[in-house]
Computed example of a mutant assay.
Amino acid sequence: MSIHNVTTTWKGKMQFESTNSSGETVLINAGEENGGEGAGLRPKAMMLSALAGCSGLDVASLIEKMKLEVEDFKIETSANLTEEHPKIYDQVTVEYHFYGANLNEAKLQRAVDLSVEKYCGVMEMFRKFATVEVKTFFHK
């Protein structure tokens, strides 16, 4: 079993600084409409970033292992936020965009599928509370 630790410290008003065990930090802040100053990421947006980052790391590793030619790669996530408190994401769309002149679409799709179905723990966590739709786009 592995334990992950993060320390989150109040910086005043509606801002926090979250630090991982490697010493890396991220600012968390509420939007102006909720008393924040807009600096830093919102907690729910960080969840979408974690989802994209987890899967993206899987796919990037597989791109390297499969020796695939990819000029650029990005993941766009969008989510539906429920109206009632506690407001949660109930539907999430994850779009993988690959750019390049010599894309091997079949192998890239396999890399996405492996991440989504086998490797990405954050994706599996999201499935516990939301419907997750995955789309892949190839741009040549």
Rank of each mutant, 00 (worst) to 15 (best):
S2D: 15
I3S: 14
H4W: 03
N5E: 13
V6K: 10
T7M: 05
T8I: 15
T9I: 15
K13D: 13
Q15E: 15
F16H: 11
E17T: 14
S18P: 10
T19G: 12
N20D: 15
S21F: 00
S21R: 00
S21K: 02
S22P: 04
E24D: 13
E24L: 10
T25K: 05
T25I: 05
V26L: 10
V26Q: 01
L27I: 06
I28A: 11
I28S: 03
I28P: 07
N29W: 02
G31L: 02
G31Y: 14
G31W: 03
E32F: 08
E33V: 05
N34F: 15
G35S: 01
G36T: 12
A39Q: 05
A39R: 08
G40Q: 02
L41R: 10
L41G: 13
R42A: 04
K44T: 09
A45M: 11
L48N: 01
S49K: 00
L51R: 07
A52V: 01
A52Q: 01
C54M: 06
C54P: 01
S55Q: 06
G56Y: 10
G56V: 01
G56A: 05
L57C: 04
L57Y: 12
D58Q: 04
D58A: 07
V59Y: 07
V59H: 00
S61W: 13
I63K: 07
E64W: 00
M66H: 11
M66F: 15
M66S: 14
K67Y: 02
L68W: 09
V70Q: 06
F73H: 09
S78Y: 14
N80G: 01
T82E: 03
E83S: 07
E84M: 06
P86T: 06
P86Q: 10
D90Y: 07
V92H: 05
T93V: 13
E95R: 11
E95I: 04
F98T: 01
F98E: 06
Y99F: 14
A101P: 09
A101W: 00
E105S: 08
A106S: 13
A106Q: 13
R110D: 12
R110Q: 15
R110T: 12
A111W: 03
A111R: 01
A111M: 02
A111K: 04
V112S: 03
D113P: 13
E117N: 15
E117W: 07
K118Y: 10
Y119D: 00
Y119N: 06
G121E: 03
G121C: 06
G121P: 00
V122Y: 02
V122N: 13
V122C: 10
V122H: 06
E124R: 11
R127P: 10
R127V: 05
R127W: 09
F129I: 10
F129Q: 11
F129W: 14
F129A: 08
F129H: 12
T131D: 15
T131C: 08
E133F: 08
E133G: 11
V134C: 14
T136R: 08
F137P: 05
F137V: 01
F138N: 03
